[in-house]
Amino acid sequence: MLRIDCPWCGTRDEVEFSFGGESHLTRPTLDASDAVWSDYLFNKDNPKGIHFERWMHRFGCGRWFNVARDTLTHEIHAVYEMGAAKPDLAVKDPDS
């Protein structure tokens, strides 16, 4: 069970949230090639490690936010607002 810290409502169980996939994607311009569109639409980073992803508090405030979560341990390293830059997680290395 993930415990997710909604920036507006506080920490809640994962069942209240919807997963929105990879974050920080930039829509290509309209004259982009098929290859660029395909990459934008379908290809994923899908890392084994820290994943920057979107979540929505569906059964709460209904707002979207970003989460930096380790896909191997499920540990949540950071929660930050939509539009904010990827946080620098070097200082939050669990092994340090």
């Binding site: 379908f42 994923k44 980073d45 896909t71």
Partner: peptide, 8 residues
């Protein structure tokens, strides 16, 4: 060095 349309 190529990307795939896969989510694990």
């Amino acid at each position: 060095d190529f990307r795939v349309p896969i989510t694990s």
